[in-house]
């Protein structure tokens, strides 16, 4: 646990004049079964009472996630996601086919590229820690992201990371550049800090 924030963000105000939160209400809060004004009052108290805050956070650690209430299952035909998925598939079919045709008939040009590393690319790089990948789906995903960004690269069927990539998270977002070089159907990737 981060020692700085743990200490600094812990409520320190004294609310000795108020009664402490009811134990069962704290339990309900952990389960998410308390609502409206009752919840508001409770949150206000917890933000000012170190004792109730401590009980709440310790209980959250003890109560296993699986004991939380799960909503009743909704029949598949009532789920909006089913219709959204069907609509998406139709769109993909119509527009995707055109894109695939355009891509396959267009000449592959660039053998090198440099681009800012964004979360989409990071997700692909961090999928696993292997330095070489031949996973077709993963390579296709990389290609499609590059195309989406307007990069027309030579085709490749293997990817080699010249050195392992570890994500550096920062509140101020460090700028990283992905360098791509393609030789003999192999894409060599390297992430460097932006200067």
């Amino acid at each position: 646990m981060g020692k700085w924030l743990h200490k600094t963000l812990k409520p320190t105000d004294s609310v000795e004049s108020e009664p402490h939160a009811d134990i069962e209400n704290l339990a309900r809060l952990v389960e998410g079964s308390i609502e409206g004004d009752e919840r508001k009052r409770l949150l206000r108290h917890i933000n000012r009472c170190s004792r109730c805050y401590e009980i709440l956070q310790e209980t959250m650690q003890d109560v296993p996630a699986e004991t939380s209430d799960k909503p009743a299952p909704i029949p598949w035909y009532q789920k909006k996601s089913v219709y959204a998925l069907a609509a998406s598939m139709l769109l993909i079919f119509f527009f995707g086919a055109q894109l695939v045709y355009k891509f396959q008939t267009a000449p592959s040009l660039a053998a090198t590229a440099k681009l800012a590393l964004d979360q989409e690319l990071k997700d692909i790089l961090l999928e696993d820690s292997r330095l070489q990948w031949q996973n077709v789906k993963r390579i296709k995903r990389l290609l499609s992201v590059l195309q989406k960004k307007g990069y027309r690269l030579k085709s490749f069927d293997r990817v080699v990371l010249t050195r392992p990539y570890y994500q550096v998270k920062s509140l101020f977002g460090p700028q990283e550049i992905l360098h791509i070089r393609i030789e003999d159907n192999v894409a060599y990737l390297e992430v460097k800090a932006a200067k």
């Binding site: 339990a27 389960e31 079964s33 209980t59 109560v63």
Partner: peptide, 9 residues
Amino acid sequence: SKLTTYLYS
């Protein structure tokens, strides 16, 4: 609340 959660609290 659930008894388990109450007991933990």
